[in-house]
Design a protein around this nucleic acid. Structure first.
Lengths: 226, 226
DNA sequence: CCTTCCCGTTGATCCAGGTCAATGACGCCC
DNA sequence: GGGCGTCATTGACCTGGATCAACGGGAAGG
């Protein structure tokens, strides 16, 4: 496990000189988490910077009655815990590994000390935070202004464009439909019905985790909430 | 209107040497917007950094049917448009002045050039973004997991602690109930009914824009969603 | 091979809250 | 002072989706 090699590949560290990375790598800790394992509760201090190397992690909030809302689905290369490293005292959500995952832990103060001398790293962080903020706004919009089929449609559009550019019309989910429901802010039942409605309308066809888009235009119109 | 004086007071510019601020101030533009005036649509490029000097601004999303969700309510000293200055192409929301407002505009490239040489400014931005991200997460949690009275309760708790610390049990809204409804992700009717329910329960008393908390403990329990 | 989960699906029921419509109370401008 | 637009409120109604319960199927583990 060559930590340094891994770090060099990440968008987070693009443009950061190798010796700075080395300083970080020396003080970083690599750990693996089993599927279903939680790293941080909402109240833990957790002054560290986490970077996912392998696997999949979700950030989520849960209600006292046990309902859950996924805030973010993170994969290899995605960092989190930026907030706590620089600013906020306690982590604002829960984090759970969805599969066996390898995570790099960089102590907050270490990260901060090095970043202060390396503006490029700070800018990278700003870009990532901006992106997250934009995603959050999209989620808020979905939850507040869209119904479930529309949310699914815009989720799919995003996933498609992120994955395979334009021509793509096939998609393999990285999570179960249950988890997808939590991302969309719905129950599994409601999602299932939404899917059914859309496949009846000839927009898409779902088989387990694989989704085929049959009518991309209709999907786009749904996503815009028309 | 001494722009430089104003800038020195802002959290955004704390710790930034005066000569850098001066360089920014020289290339900044001060403009006023009338109540109800929109600055940026979701699709405009708007590569600028905005800082509110006076007045009140909301960031929001709207649906084709005309429903609106307020993402952020911003007041004097609050910056926005961070995303576009560094990262994202188009602004991810709409912005509208709720009252007559004076805004400082710093062109994106200017801001970027100076920030690159001034890590402290970058760190300030990171802190503000982290904070916004945390607020967004709270809003997502509210929309997805809480009902309206609970949302109102947690909004009030936040507002109270932000305003007057602990002892405070009186609160003057800066916006109409209509606008508050858009912040909470509800209709004015639903909010009105929520308020009524809570005042029947003896938790608070509302008169126009002024709210008096009668049972802080009950309010806290509501906010936690118990 | 049989059991045991968990996942997706479907049906029945219920309710929070959105929508529509009407009313009264202010504040504003002519 | 009298119209007028906006705001808050209330009632009646409707619906999206949550909840509860039941069932089939595939994967994992005995």
């Amino acid at each position: 496990m060559d930590v340094l090699k891994q770090m060099q590949k990440l968008a987070l560290f693009q443009g950061v000189p190798a010796e700075k990375l080395k300083a970080l790598a020396e003080r970083a800790l690599y750990r693996t988490y089993k599927a279903g394992e939680m790293f941080i509760g909402e109240t833990d201090p957790a002054h560290a910077f986490y970077v996912i190397i392998t696997g999949q992690v979700k950030l989520y909030k849960s209600s006292p009655e046990g309902r859950e809302q996924t805030l973010n689905l993170l994969g290899p290369g995605d960092p989190f815990g930026m907030c706590t490293a620089f600013a906020i005292e306690s982590f604002p959500a829960n984090a759970m590994a969805l599969e066996e995952s390898g995570i790099l832990l960089i102590p907050g103060p270490v990260m901060e000390a090095i970043a202060m001398k390396e503006p490029r790293l700070l800018v990278n962080i700003i870009q990532i935070l901006s992106d997250r903020l934009r995603e959050s706004m999209t989620l808020i919009e979905s939850l507040s202004l869209k119904e479930i089929p529309q949310r699914l449609a815009s989720f799919l559009i995003h996933a498609l464009t992120r994955e395979g550019g334009q021509g793509m019309n096939q998609l393999e989910l990285t999570v179960t439909q249950r988890e997808l429901a939590k991302i969309l802010g719905a129950t599994p039942e409601a999602l299932s019905r939404g899917i059914r409605k859309m496949s009846n309308a000839g927009v898409l066809a779902v088989d387990g985790r694989s989704i085929r888009i049959l009518d991309r235009k209709a999907l786009g119109e749904l996503a815009e909430g028309d």
